[in-house]
């Protein structure tokens, strides 16, 4: 099982409570540690906070020198600009967000439908060279995207998948299948095979046993895995920028990156778009926090 960040297990060295002198020293040190942690937390969180602050600042305050931390005018204009074009109607950014939802959603469904049965089969059956197959599957996920995109680009140009959502969906699914298999294999391993054996003794076929008994138990794991696949596809940039170009296909990451192309950059808009883009990820990540370690190591490390 993955480690839960909420589980509070004190493992710190046992403090000696009998001698007052030691305790006083321990407390002083404890205060120092808390102060250090606070400083580190502030440093780590400051960029995110600054992004949120910039997104609600008036343009004049965004470019103020020296930077304004507290006394600025609050405005929601930047968020309006994210969704509404200057002449009215939907903005190019909002279209790209919609594209992102479609591409990330469909590719995740595809990766889950292909990956979960494969993970179950790898967990339950004695497949030939199982270890080698599993390692091969994981290593396809480690390929540098910039390298893979060169032949994919040529391939897509040949079959007409350049600048299409289907092309992006296929490549994202291919990058999420290894993750899904590794992550789900861990979850399947946790469900005793004896349940299926018992069901089969009762006359069910292996497939029925999987479908009616194992799959319902796997649902929470499948949900967590799918959320990670969704986050990976949502955040992906390299394939998106090389394989798509038109506004009605482009996903959000290249669209947001495109905002800094001109001579002047509207940082308020960039900040608002980034906030809109990042918020769902943070919410989803919070939902699957118990499986974070397995998730971010592509299912390879689980405790």
């Amino acid at each position: 099982m993955a480690v839960s960040v909420d589980e509070v297990v004190p493992t710190g060295p046992v403090r000696d409570h009998t001698r007052p002198a030691r305790r006083l020293g321990g407390r002083g040190r404890s205060v120092l540690e808390v102060a250090l942690l606070t400083v580190l937390a502030v440093v780590m969180l400051f960029p995110a906070l600054w992004m949120i602050e910039t997104s609600i600042k008036e343009n004049r305050d965004v470019y103020a020198i020296p930077a304004k931390f507290f006394d600025f005018k609050v405005t929601m204009d930047h968020f309006k600009d994210v969704f509404v074009a200057s002449g009215g109607g939907r903005s190019a950014l909002s279209v790209s967000f919609l594209n992102s939802v479609v591409v990330a959603g469909v590719s995740t469904v595809l990766a889950t439908v292909l990956g979960v049965p494969a993970a179950w089969a790898y967990s339950r059956f004695g497949v030939k060279a199982k270890k080698d197959q599993l390692f091969f599957i994981l290593s396809t996920r480690f390929m540098p995207p910039v390298v893979v995109v060169i032949p994919i680009f040529l391939m897509y140009r040949q079959v007409g998948l350049i600048d299409s959502k289907l092309g992006l969906i296929l490549i994202y699914a291919a990058f999420n299948v290894p993750f899904t298999i590794w992550m789900m294999k861990g979850f399947v391993d946790e469900v005793p095979a004896e349940y299926e054996d018992a069901a089969m003794l009762d006359g069910y076929t292996r497939l029925q046993a999987f479908w009616r008994f194992t799959l319902p138990l796997l649902l929470p794991g499948i949900a967590a895995t799918a959320v990670f696949a969704l986050i990976f596809s949502w955040n992906e940039f390299v394939f998106a920028i090389f394989l798509t170009s038109s506004d009605d296909v482009r996903t959000a990451p290249p669209a947001i990156a495109g905002l800094i192309g001109g001579t002047t950059v509207d940082w308020g808009l960039v900040a608002a778009a980034s906030v809109v883009f990042a918020l769902p990820v943070l919410v989803f990540a919070y939902l699957v926090r118990k499986h974070l370690i397995a998730g971010v190591t592509l299912g390879a490390v689980r405790r």
Binding site: N235, F237, P253, V281
Partner: peptide
């Protein structure tokens, strides 16, 4: 920070 897209 880890969950944010490299673009952002």
């Amino acid at each position: 920070p880890m969950m944010l897209s490299p673009v952002v």
